[in-house]
Amino acid sequence: MSSDNLPGVPVEETPEPVARTGMFGASGTGDTSGYGGLVVRRAPRLSSARPYGSYFDEVADALEPAFGDAIERVVVDRDEVTFHVARERLVDVMRHLRDDAALRFELSLGVSGAHYPDETGNELHAVYHLCSITHNRRVRVEVGCPDPDRHIPSTVSVYPTHDWHERETYDFFGIIFDGHPALTRIEMPDDWEGHPQRKDYPLGGIPVEYRGAETPAPDQRRSYA
């Protein structure tokens, strides 16, 4: 593996690869070309230390005096800053982000979700992208909750635009946003069972009318990687 084959990523740490197996029944990675050896392996950045660079330090300075205990960690990666916030303090943090003169994140771009089944005790994440028109800045706020107790306080009172976005995240991930005015399904039918964007959602195969054959579910199909 020569370094000039890698896209612009530091090679300081090379943890275990994410390897999917099964090409043509091979027991290893099935890689006979050596192409698989060109993998860029880098674990996701879990937290960053000061100075964060860019305007991120200023945002953190304005946030930390009041909410230092609420911020679990700060991640600066790919010129974006993510504040991981404790769910109990989320509404206060969001209100401060919106109202403080040094922050003024007036525009929220909604709620996205993510399911990390491997992060025990913190499986479900709600991700908020905020934009400040006053200062022309962006931040990301991320909140996690354990799967058995999937409650996150609703932020509709701070950003009314979260109404539909929280409904969507509830619909797809099953995160219950406490205090939402009407948390119902939005994309799936009202009587749908399960939350389709979760990683443990069963996908199901498609029966094919050919000698009882069946197209396997997407996550069980032969994979080249």
Partner: peptide, 22 residues
Amino acid sequence: LIHHFKLVTEGFRVPAGQAYSA
């Protein structure tokens, strides 16, 4: 040919992390 096949069927790997672009 191998390179073409691998890149088209397997695709490239993307380092772990998240990004937002608008």
